[in-house]
């Protein structure tokens, strides 16, 4: 198969900014960057757990009241919710539910899972916080 090629082929390379060339790609990249907020919030919270474990509860609570951390948390919540909605939509694309002759649409999975998210969140608050 390794024929001698008489003339060079032109190879193109994908630059680091490829995701700006098309709206779908930009949306995709925002979706992937939600992971940054998920990861960093987890790391901050693990640090707070370490303070709780070593009995330094007050410094953990002081850290939570830091305006910078609160601002980050607001962003982290927004991005995590965006992750959740894209994830729910994709579940509907990959695992549609068949009922008789009709197959579920992705937006139906999105709605259903948002309701489920609200129920779970409310249950967490009821069980652990309000009691």
């Amino acid at each position: 198969m390794s024929k001698e090629k008489p003339f060079p082929e032109y190879r193109r390379k994908l630059g680091p900014g490829w995701w700006l060339s098309n709206g779908h790609f930009t949306q995709y990249m925002i979706r992937e960057w939600t992971s940054f907020f998920v990861a960093v919030f987890s790391l901050i919270y693990i640090y707070e757990l370490s303070l709780f474990a070593s009995g330094a509860k007050d410094s953990a609570l002081a850290l939570m009241r830091n305006p910078g951390i609160i601002a980050f948390n607001v962003l982290a919540l927004l991005f995590t919710l965006y992750h959740a909605s894209t994830w729910f939509y994709l579940i509907g694309k990959v695992q549609p539910i068949k009922l008789g002759k009709t197959t579920s649409k992705p937006w139906q999975a999105l709605l259903l899972n948002i309701v489920l998210l609200l129920i779970i969140s409310y249950a967490v608050i009821q069980i652990f916080i309000v009691r």
């Binding site: 939570m64 948390n73 982290a76 919540l77 995590t80 992750h83 959740a84 969140s121 967490v124």
Partner: peptide, 14 residues
């Protein structure tokens, strides 16, 4: 991260 993390961020961080 989709189902459990948002409520934790909200409670603890906001």
């Amino acid at each position: 991260a989709a189902f459990l993390l948002p409520v934790l961020i909200y409670l603890v961080g906001i």
